[in-house]
């Protein structure tokens, strides 16, 4: 098979694998768009924000804090804080980017939303992560997020509360499926218990963006410490 058709197949594989998460974010995109218009943004501004920021949780927090005129410093700092987990995620992704030519790294990283990162890391467990697979995942998800948030801004509140319909649980289910593929026996039990314990504790005690970072760091610390015990 010529390399070009391998590329196209892998692009299609990526886009196909991004369908469940794309459906899962659709209600959130609609709600975000509707809330943003209520907060004073125009539909053009909502579309621009999705196209340039492309980070669901940061966009929700920003819309929540929105004022006219926009408090630029507060919004930038909040986006930085809410997205701090991406630093850890990028560090974990980096060694899997060996098949990427250097010029593609910057655009590839732009598409590193949580869902795309998780699916890419899952792929890297048993196959080489290729640029075509990554862009297949990322571009479908990107276009999907842009269109749903824009639709929400244009149409208004279509779905008043995604929680009532169980849509928020789609993420839990997707992440459980991905976790099953990452299961490594006893190591996973130890590391994941530490993450879960720390995340639940942080969730009770601190404002929302911190629990993910604290849970992730707790799991990483336990993994780093337990290396010595298993070493010969």
């Amino acid at each position: 098979m010529p390399p070009d058709s391998v590329c196209v197949m892998s692009l299609r594989d990526g886009a196909f694998d991004a369908i469940p998460v794309s459906l899962a974010v659709a209600p959130f995109g609609l709600v975000l768009g509707a809330l943003a218009v209520q907060a004073g943004l125009s539909p053009a501004e909502v579309g621009l924000m999705s196209a340039l920021v492309f980070a669901g949780s940061a966009q929700f927090v920003a819309v929540d804090l929105w004022q006219t005129p926009a408090p630029v410093g507060v919004l930038a700092l909040t986006a930085l804080l809410v997205n701090l987990r991406h630093v850890l995620m990028g560090a974990a992704l980096s060694p899997k980017l060996g098949a990427f030519p250097p010029r593609l790294t910057a655009p590839a990283v732009f598409l590193m939303a949580d869902e795309i990162w998780a699916l890419g890391m899952r792929r890297a467990i048993d196959r080489t992560l290729t640029p075509s697979y990554w862009f297949g995942l990322g571009l479908l998800f990107y276009a999907n997020w842009f269109l749903w948030t824009l639709a929400g801004a244009l149409v208004g509140a279509v779905i008043d509360d995604p929680l009532r319909w169980g849509f928020d649980f789609a993420f839990v289910a997707v992440f459980l499926v991905l976790l099953a593929g990452m299961w490594r026996g006893r190591t996973s039990v130890v590391v994941w218990s530490a993450s879960a314990f720390a995340a639940v504790g942080a969730h009770q005690l601190l404002p929302p963006p911190w629990y993910v970072l604290i849970g992730a760091l707790a799991g990483m610390a336990v993994a780093a410490i337990s290396v010595d015990r298993t070493a010969p």
Binding site: V191, S195, A196, A199, I214, M220
Partner: peptide, 18 residues
């Protein structure tokens, strides 16, 4: 070891409170 643990640890941390 720490970086290998990131994917599982992040996903667990995201869903654990829910």
């Amino acid at each position: 070891a720490a970086l290998d643990a990131v994917p599982g640890a992040v996903l667990v941390a995201v869903i654990a409170p829910t």
